[in-house]
Structures are given as structure tokens and as C-alpha cells.
Design a protein around this nucleic acid. Structure first.
Length: 823
RNA sequence: GCCGAAGUGGCGGAAUGGUAGACGCGACGGUCUCAAAAACCGUUGGGGGCAACCCCGUGUCGGUUCGAAUCCGACCUUCGGCACCA
């Protein structure tokens, strides 16, 4: 395929490099905390330093840089910083595979990416760069951890954790995708380990309150709401006292207490602590086999398309307090130990899963909520709708919506249970069996137990001489000089925690660190924090809808309760850009061979052309396919601007005779300013650029006609360049200089528009007959209704279409349309 | 299965109750050139007509309205997210 390419009249590489150098030496993007202008903090999610700035990064960062530049031109003091999410697994894999230290690998990548980022021509103030593998950064991770530990927000627990045998690491539940490791796609297994957790669940209720957010996509709020998964119900006990065990009952959680009389069995999660005690001798072998199977099953279960219900009877029974009935106890993998109490009351008539289970095991299906017109016949499937209580003792005849409350009251009065709220959200597992992360600042002493490292001994540094084994075992756990340390409390021999923290800890507070990145008396300078936070506009991919954003919100609330910050939410507004696809409209991937390398286009067509095309290709939030011929279009436009803006207006006639042409060009100019202002304000980059293209086309025609004077021309070009500045910063600066303006265009305000100049004097009045377009009339914009209607009726075309029909009514939309309704 | 987003020319898209297809790509025709590329000018939703013009057209079917790409209902398709949540 031969690719035709624009031949530029200018050398973008030369211009861009020169201006980037100039901006750097003049420090025009330095951000000052004490600037009197109103502040605007615009943040793009910082990238992982993979070593290559791909087109996806450009798509995230180019338009957000443009938006930040627009806010500068609106007169804000804009903080738009950049840093690197520098801890994480790939560095460790590189260490294992290529014997490069993760630090060396990471810092080398950062250097390379800084160069690539700089080639975009962004407004980043590099003095504020933040790299979270820097000990001066991660010491504060450790400090926060200690603060949380003090307040009971960090705790250690044994938990069946998800294990990826390929990454050799524990995964958070949230990091498992369809039973596979999110990162490497390996099928996961399970392991029991002592882990550190952060108690995000204590903030579940507050995290559901989005009141402090201004402009977040509804979609993200829905995802977070579903993720937290609040449900109201009743925790109710089933009696075990007849068995003479130390456990007197089994507690279950239900949202359908109204169906309690329909319980015909009980299901425990296979991992439930009571399983062993409740299994009768004759069932032991079968139960044990099932438990083992279930633990292994995470591997298999997701692979089965439609899973049939499985389970095993334990041999014992519980008693339903409400009707005194004995019902059998099963274990089944559809009961999850991680949700509710790990036990489910089985109501087959009114829950589809229970229904399927009962069918499979031949258990009774008792209707307790009668469907309308039900005459006692058997159900074909679970009945989930509203109905009237039946087979429900004293509650018979009551509508179940009422019964729900009445039964809950009864249960609470009898002391069998209580109303409760259950969340799907689980605590945040932060332990990672890895080297390349923040060491968890804890020590284990034989005498004193778990002892936190004293604050003054932070940071606990990662040892630089760690050994990386090809097995992927945690280098810290093999490093005796790291592990062995005197106990901070008794000075006796002790060992360090060898786990490091999830990298989401780093990103939970980095936006605060950006306000004072060099500060060493605390995680951030309280004054700078007060000046800048919260982030006014956060942008990034929707893939972080839940985890990162929820963790950062949690951190902020926890820090607030420690008195460290004074706001409730870290990100006031959020905007998610879409995904840039390959030229074949598929997701870019090496295996598809459709990956676009931005550097090639930067070299040949310039960063401005790449920025422009990424913004032009479609609405930013929808993403869309890259197009190699499409970028030619934007390059061609910039090329035309190069020519157009440098036309010498002194050759134009000083006193143009064509007053209308002058008025028309002013109107177009002011309409364009308005459209661009509003477009940039709302991330509508594609239509903003279209508007500028329309203006430049218009100016081009005016030039050819010679219909305007030099003053109008100069004003138009000047304002066009100002509008271009956030979009194509290099070219705008170059042309600004070449048109005799003072340095720098990036310290100018965005042009204002004049509503009167933008207003149309003559409008096209659309004339319809019965809703079909029949004529167009040029009329004054302020035409009166009666005038418009009579003009419309007088139109010969309208008359022709009316024939001998009677005009029933006439609709008038001021300045737009007349619709003649006739029959 | 559930939740969410989206379906408009050959392609990316514009128009969020009032001229469907702005802007751009591609294609076609022309200018320039020995020639090509680039650049510049013009045409470009489909069908009919010599023409003025007419008919059809925004995933499908129905509805509301003087008027629907836009609002409502049902369905189909694609993409993204979550998955036994008791």
C-alpha cells in the first residue's frame, strides 16, 4: 500500500524543537503556588513507565494538555503535573529475565519517556515530576500505613487469597478477570497466607455518597455503586442447639426475610468454619472431597459455560426458629465465604438458584408468596415478584411487602436476628509477595509480636543488592540482611515483613504529593495542599472506574479523619477519554500487528499534527480508529494555515468597498470564537477543530476575493492563532512571532467574542408543508411572526404544494422555520 | 445472565425536537508539470427526470408530534464492564 503524504511548507521538527527549548529555558510553564489568579488543578492519570510512549498515551495526554492550556488562557493559574507510576511487576520481570535491576530499568524508561512526552509540547512543570519508587515518595506510603495501623484501618488476617503461579504473586480479588490473572491471563489458584488489609469497608457507606463530586460520568458512579453492592436485609440465625456443639446456631443473611417460611434447606460455603463439625461420619469422605474440589474449582468453574448446581449434604440439620422445622444442611460452591455470613437459607420457590439446587437434590419447593391467581400448583421456575403470604403461619394473607417488615420485627423481637446491611465490597488486600514495591514497615518479634517500625526510622529501604531468581520468589524473603533486624520495642532478634504494597497505594495520594513534591516534613506541605487540592479536573481511562478511583476516594476520607486533609473528595470532576483503535478498527495489539507508533508521525508531520488529529478524529470520550490518511488531512490544514497566516495584508486595499464582506468575516470570526470557547470548555475537541477549519476556509476565500481590508485581516489571523494555541502550540507560537506579535502566545488570554458581531442579520427561513421541506427564504433575523408566515404562504413553491388544500394551521419557530399544515 | 454505551454516506464523524450528512478522509473531474507527487479549484447519500424539480433515506418494527437521527415501547447487532451477592 503506497501512502501519499503531505509535503509540508515548513519543517515541524525544527520549529517544535526550537520552541520546546525556548519554553524550557524561559521556564514559561513554571507553576507558582502564590500566583494571585484563581487556581485550576488539571490532572491526567500518570503512566506506568513501560519505556515507550505509545499512541494511547498521546490520546490520553494530548487532549488533556490542550484543555489545561485552554484553562491557562482563560486566566487560571493551572497546575498540570506529570509523574510516573514507577513500581510494579514488569520491572521485576525485566530484572529476572535480563538481569537489570528494577531501579535501573525503571529510571532508564522514565528518561526515555520524558523525552517522548516533551515531544508533545506539553505544559508540564517538570520540577514537579514525581516518581513513586523514589524512597522520598514511598516513605510516605509507609507513614500512611502506620497511621492507618494506629487507627485500626490496617490489619493482618489469614485469607484464602488468589494466587497467580506465573506472576508468583497474590492478586486482589478485583484483579482477577474471568478466573484469570488480569495481567498475564494465567488461570489462578488459591493459597492461604497472612496478609495485610486496609479497611476500606468501614467507608463503604460514605463511598456511596457522591454528593461531593461535581461532574463525574454517571456510568462511573453506577459502576462504583454496583461494586460496593449495598443490600439491606436481615441477619437471621438457624438453631443448632439440638446438636450439643459449642456453636449454638448458624447465621445467614437474607434480603428476602419474607420468604423465611419457605426455607427447605441451608447452604454453607465449602470454606465455612462449621462445615467439619456439622458433617456426620458417614458423609465425611464425600464432604471432604467436595471441599477440596471446590477449592480447586476456581480453575475449572469459569471455564464451564453453564454450570449446573452442585453440592453435598452434610448429614445434619438446623431448625428454622419461625416454624420449628428441621431442614438439611448442604455445602455448595454457589455460597461464597466472602459475602454475607457465608451461609444461605435455601428458599427454592422464590430464588432461582435455590430452585435449581432443590430440583437437583429433590428437596421440597414450598410456595410462601402466592402469585396472583395461584391455586396450589407446582412452580416451573422461582417466583420472584410480589404476592400474598401463604404457608407463613401468622403472616398468611399479608402482602409480602408488608410481611417483610412484620417478619423482620418479629425476628428482632424474638432475638433470632437483626436487620443488617451487607456489602459486596471487601477490604483492600495490599500485600504483594514482590520486591519492586513499598516495603510494609512491620517487624515480627518472638516476644513482642507484630511491631510497627517507628516513624523516625522510615523509610524502610528496599535493599539494592537483592537477588532475582528465575522462580520469581520474592527477593526480600531471601535476603537475610534485610529480614533480620532488632525489634524496635525490645531490641531482641526479629524479622521484617517481606511483603510490599500494592501499587494502588502509590496512586491513592499522588495527586496530593504533586502540590509539593520536594516536601520532607510530611507527605505534603499543608499550605500547598490548601492552595491546590482538590483536583479540579481529572482525566483518564474508564478502566480505572472502580479500583483506583475508589481507593483514592477511600484514602482521602481516611486522611481527612486523621486531620491531614480538609476535603472529602480528591477529584472534583472526572472525564474519561475513549480508546484509540487500530486502523482496522480493532483494539491495538502486537499480535494483531495494528499498533501505531506516534514517533514516526511526530518526526515527519510534527507533534502538532498528531495532537490535532487525535482531537479531530471523533468525540474524545468515544475513542475511535487511527487513520494514517486522516492525519494527512489535519497536517494539510496546518500547512494551509502556515501559508494563510503569513499572507501580507498590507497589499490589501485599505478602504474596502465591500462593507458586507467585512461584516460577514467578523461574524464568522466571532461565531468561531464562541464555538471554540464552548467546545474546548467541554472537551468537544473535534467540533472545535472543525470550527477553526471552517474559519480558515472562509478566510482563504476572502483572501482570494480581496474583499477585506488589512485591519480586519490582521484581527482575524491574530484571533485564529490564539484559538490554535492550545491545540497546536508550536505552530501557533511560530506564526505568532512571524506575524509580529510578542512572545509568548502561551501567555495570552483566549479571545473573547462579541454576541452582537456574532449574530446573524439574515437567516434562512425553512418553509415546510405538512412537515416536508418545500422552500427556503432569506429573511431578516428579527422577522416578525406574521411577516414570516405570510412570506411562506406567498411562496410559489408552497402554493404549488398546497394545491386546493385548506390551511389548517401554521407553526412558526422564530428565525428558523414555518410549517404550513394543510389537508 | 445483569449493568452501561453505541448503531447516520465508501470511511471517521456533525446535527440532542425544526434545512440530515458540518468538518475531514477517500474517490472522481480539472489546473500546473515532459511526467508523477505535492499544491490549488470543483463534484461527490441513493433513485428518477432534458430541466425546473420529484421520490426514498439516520439498525428493525411500532408509537407520540404540525414536525423525530433526536422522545417513548419492543426487537436486532456491536463494543465495554461485572458475573452464582443470598
Amino acid at each position: 500500500m503506497t501512502m501519499r503524504q503531505v509535503e509540508l511548507r515548513y519543517n515541524p521538527a525544527e520549529i517544535e524543537e526550537r520552541w520546546q527549548e525556548r519554553w524550557r529555558t524561559d521556564d514559561i510553564y513554571r507553576v507558582r503556588d502564590d500566583d494571585p489568579r484563581p487556581k485550576w488543578y488539571e490532572l491526567t492519570m500518570y503512566p506506568y513507565p513501560s519505556g515507550d510512549l505509545h499512541i494511547g498515551h498521546w490520546y490520553a495526554m494530548g487532549p488533556s494538555d490542550c484543555h489545561a492550556r485552554f484553562r491557562r488562557m482563560q486566566g487560571y493559574n493551572v497546575l498540570h503535573p506529570m509523574g510516573f507510576d514507577a513500581f510494579g511487576l514488569p520491572a521485576e520481570n525485566a530484572a529476572i529475565q535480563r538481569r537489570i535491576h528494577p531501579y535501573t530499568w525503571t529510571m532508564g524508561n522514565i528518561e526515555k519517556m520524558r523525552g517522548q512526552l516533551a515531544s508533545m509540547g506539553p505544559v508540564y512543570d517538570w520540577d514537579r515530576q514525581l516518581v513513586c519508587c523514589d524512597p522520598e515518595y514511598y516513605r510516605w506510603n509507609q507513614w500512611f500505613f502506620l497511621k492507618m495501623y494506629e487507627r485500626g484501618l490496617a490489619y493482618r488476617a489469614t485469607a484464602p487469597v488468589v494466587w497467580c503461579s506465573s506472576c508468583n504473586t497474590v492478586l486482589a480479588n478485583e484483579q482477577v478477570v474471568n478466573g484469570r490473572c488480569e495481567r498475564c491471563d494465567t488461570i489462578i489458584t488459591r493459597r492461604d497466607l497472612e496478609q495485610w488489609f486496609l479497611r476500606i469497608t468501614s467507608y463503604a457507606e460514605e463511598l456511596l455518597d457522591f454528593g461531593g463530586l461535581i461532574d463525574w460520568p454517571e456510568k462511573i458512579l453506577i459502576m462504583q455503586r454496583n461494586w460496593i453492592g449495598r443490600s439491606e436485609g436481615v441477619e437471621i440465625a438457624f438453631d443448632l442447639s439440638h446438636l450439643g456443639l459449642e456453636a449454638q446456631d448458624i447465621r445467614t443473611f437474607t434480603t428476602r426475610i419474607d420468604t423465611i417460611y419457605g426455607v427447605t434447606f441451608l447452604v454453607l460455603a465449602p470454606e465455612h468454619p462449621l462445615v467439619e463439625r456439622l458433617t456426620t461420619d458417614d458423609r465425611k469422605a464425600e464432604v471432604q472431597a467436595y471441599v477440596e474440589e471446590a477449592r480447586r474449582q476456581t480453575e475449572i468453574e469459569r471455564l464451564a459455560a453453564e454450570k449446573e448446581k452442585t453440592g453435598v449434604f452434610l448429614g445434619s440439620h438446623v431448625v428454622n426458629h419461625l416454624n420449628g422445622e428441621k431442614v438439611p444442611i448442604f455445602i455448595a460452591d454457589y455460597a461464597l465465604m466472602t459475602y454475607g455470613t457465608g451461609a444461605v437459607m435455601g428458599v427454592p420457590a422464590h430464588d432461582q438458584r435455590d430452585f435449581d439446587f432443590a430440583r437437583k437434590f429433590d428437596l421440597p419447593i414450598r410456595v410462601v408468596i402466592a402469585p396472583p391467581g395461584w391455586a396450589g400448583e407446582e412452580l416451573e421456575e422461582a417466583y420472584l415478584e410480589e404476592g400474598v403470604h401463604t404457608n407463613s403461619g401468622p403472616f398468611d394473607g399479608m402482602p409480602n411487602s408488608k410481611g417483610k417488615e412484620a417478619i423482620a420485627d418479629h425476628v428482632e423481637a424474638q432475638g433470632w436476628g437483626r436487620r443488617a446491611i451487607s456489602y459486596r465490597l471487601r477490604d483492600w488486600l495490599i500485600s504483594r509477595q514482590r520486591y519492586w514495591g513499598t516495603p510494609i514497615p512491620m517487624v515480627y518479634c518472638a516476644d513482642c509480636g507484630v511491631v510497627p517500625i517507628p516513624e523516625e526510622d522510615l523509610p524502610v529501604l528496599l535493599p539494592s543488592d537483592a537477588e532475582f531468581l528465575p522462580t520469581g520468589q520474592s527477593p526480600l524473603s531471601l535476603d537475610s540482611s534485610f529480614i533480620n533486624t532488632p525489634c524496635p520495642r525490645c531490641s531482641g532478634p526479629a524479622t521484617r515483613e517481606t511483603d510490599t504494597m500494592d501499587t494502588f497505594v502509590d496512586s491513592s495520594w499522588y495527586m496530593e504529593r504533586f502540590t509539593s513534591p520536594g516536601y520532607d516534613k510530611g507527605p505534603f506541605d499543608p499550605q500547598a495542599l490548601a492552595e491546590w487540592m482538590p483536583v479540579d479536573q481529572y482525566t483518564g481511562g474508564a478502566e480505572h472506574a472502580v479500583m483506583h478511583l475508589l481507593y483514592a476516594r477511600f484514602f482521602t476520607k481516611a486522611l481527612r479523619d486523621m486531620g491531614l486533609v480538609e476535603f472529602d473528595e480528591p477529584f472534583r470532576r472526572l472525564y474519561n477519554q475513549g480508546i484509540i483503535l487500530g486502523e482496522d478498527h480493532e483494539k491495538m495489539s502486537k499480535s494483531r500487528g495494528n499498533v501505531v507508533n506516534p514517533d514516526e508521525f511526530v518526526t515527519t508531520l510534527g507533534a502538532d499534527a498528531v495532537r490535532c488529529f487525535l482531537m479531530f478524529l471523533g468525540p474524545w470520550d468515544q475513542g475511535g480508529p487511527w487513520s494514517t490518511s486522516g492525519i494527512n488531512g489535519t497536517a494539510r490544514w496546518l500547512n494551509r494555515l502556515w501559508e494563510l497566516c503569513q499572507q501580507d495584508p498590507s497589499s490589501l486595499d485599505e478602504s474596502p468597498t465591500d462593507e458586507t464582506a467585512v461584516r460577514d468575516i467578523q461574524r464568522k470570526l466571532h461565531q468561531t470564537i464562541k464555538r471554540c470557547y464552548e467546545g474546548l470548555d467541554r472537551f468537544k475537541f473535534n467540533t472545535t477543530i472543525s470550527a477553526m477549519m471552517e474559519l480558515s476556509n472562509y478566510l482563504g476565500r476572502a483572501w482570494n476575493d480581496g474583499s477585506v481590508g488589512p485591519a480586519t485581516w490582521r484581527e482575524s489571523i491574530e484571533k485564529l492563532l490564539l484559538m490554535l494555541a492550545p491545540v497546536a502550540p508550536h505552530l501557533a507560537e511560530e506564526l505568532w512571532e512571524r506575524t509580529g506579535h510578542g512572545y509568548s502566545i502561551h501567555q495570552q488570554l483566549f479571545p473573547a467574542w462579541d454576541e452582537e458581531l456574532a449574530a446573524e442579520e439574515v437567516v434562512t427561513l425553512v418553509v415546510q408543508v405538512n412537515g416536508k421541506l418545500r422552500d427556503k427564504l432569506e429573511v431578516p433575523a428579527d422577522v416578525a411572526e406574521e411577516e414570516a408566515k405570510s412570506l411562506a404562504l406567498a411562496s410559489p413553491k408552497v402554493q404549488a404544494h398546497l394545491g386546493d388544500k385548506q390551511v389548517a394551521r401554521t407553526i412558526y419557530v422564530p428565525g428558523r422555520l414555518v410549517n404550513v399544515v394543510a389537508n
